[in-house]
Design a protein around this nucleic acid. Structure first.
Length: 355
DNA sequence: CACTCGTGGCA
DNA sequence: TTGCCAAGAGT
């Protein structure tokens, strides 16, 4: 008891005196904790919350989720980004059911074997659900520790990750490690925030080295982002009797598993004449181009997309690639699509006005 | 290991 | 407008 460090004493005491009442804090069910942790990876609580509620409602148990179809899960994930999380989520659910008999592993190493569960998520589940003495280091923890201990090692370097992991482990109390972990993360999320931290409300500000040294706004140190790639997407909007033509994206590119109108990517923006030329080169002669909308600018973490939607009609002789599918209006809703395609479809077919 | 994977909010 | 960033993981 008295061996508790001043750090844990201050932060856990502060946490116990009141914190946000988030739905996943009302349970220790590893399924729900896991779901919340994956949903919140690189994602704001406000953004992930409605998704959590819908997932729990629709798939209340890991067994239920394991029986889901990948397209269903991607559809439920639509709009949240980083869609590999959704595919890994389903994969891990099936691992839990078919390899572990429906029970989540109760150790960090065991959890680590699940698809989409890395060092952070494994530590979070192990400490919160099973009381294991495993420290977690997420973005919040990096920030709190970098400031309180005035550590300037870049958090995205190998040395930084080692250093912060060791410090977090040294600070972890033997009793109630899950509460300690959540308390530090909550402090980072609500008080020790990236810009303009609320130091007058911080339980450790009297001993915060960065505050003492006046360098809070320069910590933590991160390397700059890499260069952003510019891409030009020319979508072929083909209306048939059976509906709009879509194809499913595959491979390792963005939006794997999501649908879109057939794509003609070009290294530069295309004027109508250049588009006709590119269309003929890619899919043969005889196409008609009726008009276009865009380009629409869409920013991703490492790319900037310029999307143009071209209304086209193929010649009668055209034999479409095997993965093209005409999708009638009522069925469009079942296909997961990326945000810009979702917006395009909404413009193309305005939603029915509410009652 | 450097790079990649979305989206939206904010100053 | 631009850049930063938010409960990371996979390759």
């Amino acid at each position: 008891m008295s061996s508790l460090s001043w750090f844990t004493r201050a932060v856990v005491g502060w946490y116990a005196s009141g914190h946000r009442d988030l739905p996943w804090r009302r349970t220790r069910d590893p399924y729900r904790i896991w779901l919340s942790e994956v949903l919140l990876q690189q994602t704001r609580v406000d953004q992930g919350m409605p998704y959590y509620e819908r997932f729990v409602e629709r798939w209340p148990t890991v067994e239920a989720l394991a029986t889901a179809d990948e397209q269903e899960v991607l559809k439920a994930w639509q709009g949240l980004g980083y869609y590999s999380r959704a595919r890994n989520l389903l994969s891990a659910a099936r691992q839990v059911v078919h390899v572990h008999g429906g029970r989540f592993p109760d150790t960090r190493a065991g959890l680590r074997q699940l698809q989409g569960v890395g060092e952070y998520t494994a530590g979070a589940i192990a400490s919160i659900c099973f009381g294991r003495p495993e420290a977690v280091v997420d973005g919040n923890v990096y920030r709190v520790l970098a400031r309180v201990f005035a550590i300037g090692t870049p958090i995205d370097s190998t040395a930084g990750q080692r250093e912060f992991r060791a410090l977090a482990a040294a600070l972890l109390p033997k009793t109630a490690p899950g509460d300690h972990n959540q308390a530090v993360m909550e402090l980072g999320a609500t008080v020790c925030v990236p810009r303009a931290p609320l130091c007058d409300r911080c339980p450790v500000s009297p001993r915060c080295l960065a505050r003492r040294q006046g360098c809070i706004d320069r910590l933590p140190v991160k390397g700059g982002r890499g260069r952003v790639r510019e891409r030009h997407f020319n979508h072929l909007c083909i209306a048939t009797d059976g509906g709009l033509v879509l194809r499913k994206r595959t491979g390792k590119d963005i939006w794997a598993g999501l649908h879109e109108p057939p794509l003609l990517e070009s290294p530069h923006p295309l004027a109508p004449a250049a588009f006709r030329s590119a269309l003929r080169r890619a899919f043969g002669p005889g196409w008609k181009v009726h008009g276009h909308t865009g380009p629409v600018r869409h920013v991703l973490s490492h790319q900037v997309l310029h999307l143009t939607y071209w209304e086209v009609t193929p010649p009668r002789s055209f034999a479409p690639p095997a993965d093209w599918r005409a999708v009638a209006g009522p069925h469009l809703d079942r296909h997961p699509v990326p945000r810009p395609i979702e917006r395009y479809l909404a413009l193309r077919r305005p939603a029915e006005p509410g009652p």
